[in-house]
């Protein structure tokens, strides 16, 4: 008699799902639980002391710490700078690529390239471009007569974060561009024809048809770009963080992820860092669920 548990269909399921569950369980969920337990302790590898359970003290300490709020504010500022900048550039580029002209395909292909550049290289690239002694940005502005002297673009702490946002925008704008372009191509041309017959000008058509019809695409791109900007790390690391080779981390561009790295892997305050990672997780849940809901609806229904 064939056992219900050993029928070939079930074996197939087990063979495929078990490695998957093992990987995700062992590398993601088990450590996540572990990190949570650590966040309730005073573990600090710099200080040789027995590890004590201290409840939620790490959390309250972070929430009462000015540095935490400063870093959080900076992360939100980065997001607030990046999202509008990216969306405007992406929308303009999408409108351009939605027009028919010879060579459009090539323009699209080339415009997407920055998106594929490793973020680490991206940070270096711009670090050199903006270099105060020999950077090409200085060279360009100087030749155009826009500056009299070479500037140290990345030196002023108050504008460093703006440069971080610009550099991140440079790599990421292609994603919203592609999403918005697909949205534009999905608008039925009849809508525009009808509006033209009714005498709507191009501004009116933009406000009454294009923008409302693009809202779903816009939502998708904003959610994905929020996640990407909120978790910014590589670009900051190579552009302004100055944390390589054990150097001190620049406080003026310290975003949440950089701060978390510093707490855990530099200061070795494991308990506090673990608590911070959970606070970051909590703050990301909102957008996270929006993102998941979209995937879920399409991903799980069979046939």
């Amino acid at each position: 008699m064939r056992s219900r548990w050993l029928n070939p269909d079930r074996l197939f399921l087990v063979a495929i799902l078990v490695p998957l569950i093992l990987l995700v369980g062992a590398l993601i969920y088990y450590p996540a639980v572990n990190t949570f337990q650590t966040s309730l302790t005073n573990q600090n590898l710099r200080i040789n002391r027995p590890i004590e359970q201290i409840g939620f003290e790490n959390y309250t300490r972070l929430l009462g710490d000015d540095e935490f709020w400063e870093v959080l504010g900076r992360s939100l500022l980065v997001v607030a700078l990046i999202l509008p900048m990216e969306t405007i550039i992406a929308f303009a580029a999408a409108l351009l690529l939605n027009e028919k002209f010879p060579g459009r395909g090539l323009v699209r292909t080339l415009a997407i390239i920055p998106w594929m550049v490793p973020p680490v290289v991206n940070g270096f690239l711009w670090g050199w471009l903006l270099n105060g002694e020999y950077g090409a940005f200085n060279g360009l502005l100087y030749q155009l007569g826009l500056i009299q002297d070479y500037q140290y673009w990345l030196r002023d702490p108050s504008t460093q974060i703006v440069w971080v946002a610009i550099v991140h925008t440079w790599t990421r704008f292609a994603f919203p561009m592609i999403v918005l372009l697909a949205g534009l191509q999905g608008i039925p041309p009849e809508l525009y024809d009808a509006a033209k017959v009714d005498g709507a000008g191009s501004l009116q058509r933009m406000l009454r048809i294009t923008i409302p019809m693009l809202l779903p695409s816009l939502a998708v791109s904003l959610v994905v770009e929020f996640i990407s900007a909120f978790q910014i790390f590589d670009v900051v690391w190579t552009l302004t963080a100055g944390g390589s080779a054990g150097g001190t981390i620049n406080p003026f561009t310290k975003t949440l992820m950089i701060y978390n790295y510093e707490l855990v892997f530099r200061d070795l305050r494991i308990g506090l860092g673990a608590a911070l990672s959970y606070l970051i997780l909590l703050m990301s849940l909102g957008v996270g669920f929006f993102f998941i809901r979209r995937l879920y609806n399409e991903g799980v229904k069979s046939r």
């Binding site: 995700v24 639980v33 572990n34 990672s277 997780l281 990301s284 998941i292 879920y296 991903g299």
Partner: peptide, 25 residues
């Protein structure tokens, strides 16, 4: 549905909660 949900959750959420303990493991 549950399995799918817990796998997809990895995509939008920050992975630091796992990385810290994973380093020691």
């Amino acid at each position: 549905g549950l399995a799918f949900f817990f796998i997809m959750l990895l995509m939008p959420l920050p992975i630091w909660v796992s990385l810290i303990a994973l380093f020691f493991l």
